[in-house]
């Protein structure tokens, strides 16, 4: 997915670079030696259980908490440096914190006005930003009256102010319904085509795995693996499963054929047989099953899920 993105080919230089980054809270090593290269224009996922160190890494990238050791560079500028570069970097960045909290007494539009002023951008665009996240109808209502999903969308709108080149989104789809999640990723894809670099954390793997260009799996303060979903699957060399649908009368015949093939576990179910097989035997198994003309009614392949990859790495 990553390599076919025109924006990425155009702006594939390293936008966020972490080298040997550590964060220790006393004896707790929340982040314990992270190296990461996130390219310009990339939609990058940071996956891990709660407490894996994602949010801490995020906060260090934003300069919200000091780095114990190592270095993080955003678009070439080291994070944590004071002076003019601090503001210049911040103006390129949009941030949506986990469980964003906004001001209940302000309206949606006033909220954006406030943050636009802090970011030093004209509030003239604010209505357009609200339109983008689907909140125009509630622009003049107090945040107090917003649902959780609407607050999340307003938080996202705030992150989009000033056309940032980098977006940090911490569990951004919390509280969104499936429809809103689809809309949210549609916006992210659009931003990606505009060359915006997005880093997104999640612990909902199913949601993120088909939507990011690359991802990093974090566990125990370390990045356990980085790559595309396909690349990670391949590297883990996890076996895949065939679901072979057969007529009950033919069960034994099919089982006999499978017995001569390089397959792993074979599980008989009501109307199908589940067959585990190593990746390199995939084509041989398909060919053998295809030869059982008439006996095999249907055949489907189950790839290992990111969950399998994830648990493979983080255990």
């Amino acid at each position: 997915m990553a390599d076919t993105s025109p924006a990425l080919n155009e702006a594939g230089k390293a936008m966020i670079v972490a080298r040997g980054v550590r964060k220790h809270f006393g004896a707790i090593h929340a982040v314990d030696g992270v190296d990461l290269d996130i390219r310009g224009g990339e939609l990058f996922g940071l996956i891990g259980h709660n407490g894996a160190g994602k949010s801490t890494l995020f906060k260090m990238m934003l300069g919200l908490i000091p780095i114990t050791a190592g270095e993080i560079r955003i678009d070439g500028a080291p994070v944590g440096a004071g002076g003019g570069s601090f503001r210049a970097v911040r103006r390129k960045v949009g941030y949506l914190p986990e469980n964003v909290v906004l001001y209940d007494n302000l309206t949606g539009l006033e909220t954006l006005d406030f943050f636009a002023r802090l970011k030093g951008v004209s509030p003239a665009d604010n209505m357009r930003v609200l339109e983008r996240v689907g909140l125009v109808h509630a622009a003049r209502r107090r945040v107090r009256e917003y649902s959780k999903g609407m607050r999340q969308r307003l938080g996202f709108a705030q992150a989009l102010l000033g056309r940032p080149r980098i977006l940090f989104l911490d569990e951004p789809t919390n509280g969104l319904d499936p429809e809103a999640i689809r809309g949210f990723y549609a916006i992210l894809r659009q931003l990606r085509s505009e060359g915006v670099t997005t880093v997104i954390t999640s612990h909902i793997l199913a949601e993120i795995q088909e939507r990011v260009d690359r991802l990093a799996i974090m566990a125990a303060g370390k990045v356990q693996a980085v790559g595309t979903v396909a690349g990670l699957r391949e590297r883990m060399d996890l076996p895949l499963w065939f679901d072979v649908r057969v007529a009950p009368a033919d069960f034994e015949a099919v089982r006999a054929v499978l017995g001569h093939l390089p397959v792993g576990a074979v599980e008989a179910h009501d109307d199908h047989v589940a067959v585990q097989c190593a990746r390199e035997s995939k084509m041989a198994v398909i060919a053998a099953l295809a030869s059982l003309d008439g006996k095999v009614l249907d055949l489907s392949v189950r790839e290992p899920s990111l969950e399998d990859v994830f648990f493979g790495f983080s255990d």
Binding site: L62, F86, R87, P97, K119, G120
Partner: peptide, 14 residues
């Protein structure tokens, strides 16, 4: 305590 400080501090403000 409300959780709005992180967002404020992520702005271009010291």
């Amino acid at each position: 305590e409300r959780g709005s400080l992180d967002l404020l501090l992520s702005m271009p403000i010291t």
